[in-house]
Design a protein around this nucleic acid. Structure first.
Length: 640
RNA sequence: GCCGCGGUGGCUCAGCAGGUAGAGCGGCUCCUUGGUAAGGAGCAGGCCGAGGGUUCAAAUCCCUCCCGCGGCUCCA
């Protein structure tokens, strides 16, 4: 055999080419290419497809290494971690039937068809995982024929099911780790020593069929890192995130609370009401500028209203109902019916359009107990809601304006957000063709506004498609806040009409929209975003005056009075505590500005300002200090 | 709603092979009059989520319910 026949040429990411002898493994080829980095390679891509390092090279092709830092490499490591967890679970609970164990955004999970996993099991699983990782067991790939595979997984109907989903002609691969064999497409890291930073995040029951009450499986969640220090870093971030939890911060700052007697119904405390009022003022400024009118409609409507709106058919299971004098009333879950009734209350002209009606009313939705979550998922909330009645031609312009306002609003809070286009759900009102038109309109405006968005099929409201705004909490969980919904259905169902310039009667289209979403959820997410350090304009106390000693109490009180006349929320604390203690308390209370008043300030007519989050202080003439603080608040600057 | 875990002073938690409760922080009082992240002392404060059961005796064991937490389903 000649040399040419026994070698093949491999192209590497830097454009270089290497000749390797046939049968050389991918790992060996990469080691030859970059010997110093080879210990960072956990798998590779061969002609763009992920492969194991032990895969032999038999034909020419393109080869690129995968590291943990590469998204594809990370996924491979997560999935390998899932395998180790599965092996551990099988040792602890031999009758468990593994199903699937994919990587996730956070890490990985593996689902088992098995009785509920107890704390005792979990302890033993954790110990077993540690032992398996320490054992440094290699992952070996084997390709088998269908009959062999069926024999291997005969006891596991789930694996047999997956087996038969493998397209004919595609190889069936299994991976062996010690005595454990799993059906798997692969690839994997070379050995379990790559999983030194493997950590279990929890065990829980999950739905096996996508329903709430159907069969369940047990999910073990975890995250894998190649090393302990990387895991430690991840855990430190998680602790930081937990400390930002709005339920903790909101309690500490006395913004809101809950009682057992009203599960899911937030109680806004005095401090929290200040935040809400400021947010309302922020939104109302926009409403005034953009030509909205504010309305208030009842919290309860008779059942017939919801029959008209479609809520009775499509949303009743989420509504609180009340019987009075033999009539059924429903607590409104949305503001739309009230706005529809106002539009219908007299004849309307095209000259009134767009008619923009805003309503900040409490809404009630029955959310199942297990879904409640602090302020981000509640049963009573207030949206910065509005319904805009437009003619067909006015839709695009109106939505463009809304998208611009959303960008401005979220930028004010330095939040990062994303857009999602949700389309026709399974349960919907109206004609599919009308839906198609509405969806196309939303898509067109998004594209013309050069906005990146994700499409969520079937996630629209029952009356129309929508563009949702999502922001993430401290644990990276996404929450929907703002929404723009295009609705051809409710105007029809309520029989809304306006007279056009042509003299004929037309049915308007309605844009349902919120910007911040609900005060409750928005405040929750914002608190996590800023770790309780709200922008000064939202802070319940913006300035705290600290007299150095008793004899400065009077000048401190006088300064508080002047701050208040300047429109700032200010207070003085002159308790028995030391100045250092009071400075510390102010920082923990997230007060933007601490003003210290002592002999030096009295003599100079100045104030000593300490700004939240910064060491040290600066001394300013009082008028200058007042001007700075009020400007910061007026401009709604994010930082003090 | 489903599965698992939890519920002890305002907050965070200890006590739980059964013998009727502790700490720190916070609060109040007193001492200290302090210059930018915790000065000191004392005092008050809890039918241990609710109801039932076992027991001579239950915060501790058992059952039911309520509420919370983590996932799931669902959703702003």
């Amino acid at each position: 055999m000649s040399a040419a026949e026994s070698t093949v040429e491999v192209e590497l990411p830097d454009g270089s080419h290497r000749a390797v002898s046939k049968g050389t493994t991918v790992g060996a080829a990469l080691r030859g290419w970059r010997p110093n980095d080879a210990d960072k390679f956990l798998a590779a891509e061969w002609d763009g497809a992920p492969v194991d390092l032990e895969r032999p090279i038999v034909a020419p092709g393109r080869l690129a290494p995968l590291r943990f830092e590469d998204p594809a490499g990370r996924d491979i490591l997560q999935h390998s971690a899932a395998h180790v967890v599965a092996k551990a679970v099988m040792e602890v609970i031999p009758e468990a039937k593994p199903t699937a164990g994919p990587p996730t955004e956070e890490g990985f999970y593996y689902d088992f068809d098995v009785r509920p996993i107890t704390e005792e099991d979990t302890k033993r699983i954790v110990e077993t995982v540690a032992r398996l990782v320490a054992a440094d067991e290699p992952f070996h790939r084997e390709e088998v024929d269908l009959a062999t595979a069926e024999r291997l997984f005969a006891s596991n109907p789930h694996k047999l099911g997956y087996l038969h989903e493998v397209p004919p002609g595609e190889p069936i691969s299994v991976y062996r780790t010690g005595a454990w064999t799993d059906l798997c497409r692969g690839p994997h890291v070379p050995s379990t020593r790559w999983l030194k930073g493997l950590h279990l995040l929890g065990v829980s029951s999950v739905s096996a069929d996508g329903t709430a009450t159907g069969p369940q499986r047990q999910r073990v969640r975890g995250v894998g890192f190649p090393s302990k220090p990387q895991l430690e870093q991840f855990l430190a971030l998680r602790r930081e995130a937990a400390a930002r939890d709005h339920r903790v911060v909101g309690q500490r700052l006395e913004l809101f609370t809950f009682v057992d007697e009203a599960p899911g119904f937030p109680i806004w405390l005095p401090n929290g009401m200040i935040v809400v009022r400021e947010l309302e003022a922020f939104v109302r400024e926009h409403l005034n500028a953009a030509g909205y009118s504010e309305i208030r409609t009842p919290l309860l409507f008779a059942r017939s209203v919801y029959e008209t709106s479609g809520h009775w058919e499509h949303y009743r299971e989420n509504m609180f109902l009340t019987e009075i004098e033999d009539r059924t009333f429903g607590w409104k879950p949305m503001n739309c019916p009230g706005s529809m009734l106002i539009f219908r209350s007299r004849a309307r002209s095209y000259r009134e359009l767009p008619l923009r009606l805003a309503e900040f009313a409490p809404l009630h939705r029955y959310e199942p107990s297990g879904t409640l979550h602090g302020m981000t998922r509640v049963r009573e909330f207030v949206q910065d809601d509005a319904h805009i009645f437009v003619s067909e031609e006015q839709i695009e312009e109106e939505i463009r304006t809304l998208l611009a306002w959303i960008e401005q609003a979220f930028t004010t809070f330095r939040l990062s957000w994303s857009y999602e286009l949700s389309t026709r759900p399974a349960s919907f009102l109206g004609e599919a063709s009308q839906w198609d038109r509405a969806e196309a309109t939303l898509e067109k405006v998004l594209q013309e506004s050069k906005i990146a968005y994700k499409v969520s099929k079937g996630e629209g409201a029952f009356y129309g498609p929508k563009i949702d705004i999502h922001v993430r909490d401290s644990l990276n969980r996404p929450w929907q806040t703002g929404t723009i919904q295009l609705d051809y259905q409710l105007p029809q169902r309520f029989g809304l009409e306006y007279q056009g310039s042509d003299g004929a009667l037309h049915t308007p289209v309605v844009v349902h929209r919120t910007i911040l979403g609900t005060w409750e959820r928005f405040v929750g997410v914002l608190l996590e975003h800023c770790a309780g350090r709200l922008p000064p304009w939202l802070c319940p106390v913006q300035a705290r005056v600290l007299p150095v000693s008793d004899r400065h109490d009077a000048p401190a009180a006088a300064l508080v009075a002047r701050l208040r006349s300047a429109g700032l929320r200010a207070e003085a604390t002159g308790s028995g505590d030391t100045l250092s203690k009071r400075v510390r308390d102010a920082e923990l209370d997230r007060i933007p500005w601490v003003l210290v008043v002592g002999d030096a300030e009295a003599a100079a007519g100045s104030v000593a300002i300490r700004t939240r989050g910064r060491k040290g202080q600066e001394s300013l003439p009082e008028p200058e200090a007042l001007a700075r603080l009020t400007a910061r608040v007026r401009e709604r600057s994010f930082d003090p």
